[in-house]
Design a protein around this nucleic acid. Structure first.
Lengths: 191, 191
DNA sequence: GGAAACACTTAACCTAGATTAAGAAGTGGT
DNA sequence: ACCACTTCTTAATCTAGGTTAAGTGTTTCC
């Protein structure tokens, strides 16, 4: 059974024919860990739907420090949304964390899809809505909570992921340095 | 000329009849400064489109500290997106900053609108997309930049707004205390 | 299989920004 | 006009988290 169709079915119901149209517009690809699918300064012409493995997006600030924007495991989409939507050069990197199998949807094909299967417009609207809500929550959390509380939230929200991710990436996601993260974990263990 | 229709026209083109349908689903209201339109714990059943004045949304953390999530001036929408989309109790307050005239769209009417004027689904998708992009940028900025750089970005992005907002709200938006904000501004003046 | 590169830890020291407190300057309501 | 209330500022002190540096595994890859 196809993971993408399963996910779509959670939000809109497509006929068999529509399902086939959707799949016809996507392409499967396999990537090794550490493959970089998008670099800062490039236009994000495709978005990726993860079937297997883990991807992440991040930017690198003017001091060379990496900030993880998102992780994507199976069932999740990932892209530089700014760049993908505007078709302008973006600031994000997208990199394969663990050997991955992904479905690729080009911007072009997405536009065609909206025309041929209008229900997909609703589907993507809902995805973006959820993404906005999650993002806004993260903003609020970053402003309201200490690093410790953010880490706690993270381990609960991404319980399966935590064990597959290097610590420095978790540290980066919650917004602290690897050194402080290490110190914090040691402190938590004593309790 | 209607500000809402102007805004819609920037993204999708509606027939006169469709325009009338849209307006029929909204309702105009006037509010005095300091009116609270939504409180934490309530379900956000309406979203607001600002015609005149300024609104803001914020949450209050467990220490009683206010964190401004967004400002809305004429031409902008504001709502607790989590609550509005899920129709569950939210954590945001929405308050009138300056005497305001707003268009109100209920969740119910929005759903009807999607059915009667399907182009509006595209319109709102685009709004949400833009909102997501802006939000993600703010997250990255908060992780990458010092308070000073964030303030600088803020004054450029909201140049007209800066003069109408109390400093503590700007401080809250960029994520510092009013005291530190004050110190920082004094420091900037010396340069 | 060995060197280089990377991941993680620990510890000493440092700093951006928080906290507390107190005064000055608006602002609004009656 | 006046009192109450909130906003803004300044300054002393404090702390969460950053920086630097050094040491110990662990991968990776010729």
């Amino acid at each position: 059974m196809n993971l993408l169709l399963e996910n779509i079915a959670k939000h809109v119901s497509l006929s068999n024919e529509e399902q086939e149209r959707v799949l016809a517009f996507t392409e499967t690809q396999h990537y090794k860990a550490k493959t970089i699918l998008l670099k800062e300064g490039q236009v994000c012409t495709h978005s990726f739907f993860v079937l297997k493995g883990i991807l992440r997006s991040y930017n690198i600030d003017e001091n060379g420090v990496e900030h993880v924007v998102s992780f994507a495991c199976p069932g999740w989409w990932i892209a530089d949304m700014y760049s993908f939507l505007s078709q302008r050069p973006g600031q994000l990197y997208i990199e394969v964390n663990e050997d991955a199998e992904v479905l690729i949807l080009s911007k072009e094909n997405q536009e065609k899809l909206y025309l041929e299967v209008p229900k997909m417009e609703r589907f993507f609207r809902i995805l973006i809505e959820n993404s906005l809500v999650a993002n806004q929550q993260r903003l609020i959390d970053n402003m309201s909570f200490t690093a410790e509380a953010r880490y706690d939230k993270f381990t609960k929200k991404y319980a399966e992921l935590v064990h597959c991710l290097p610590q420095k990436q978790i540290a980066s996601y919650i917004g602290v340095t690897p050194e402080f993260f290490s110190k914090m974990k040691a402190r938590l263990l004593k309790k």
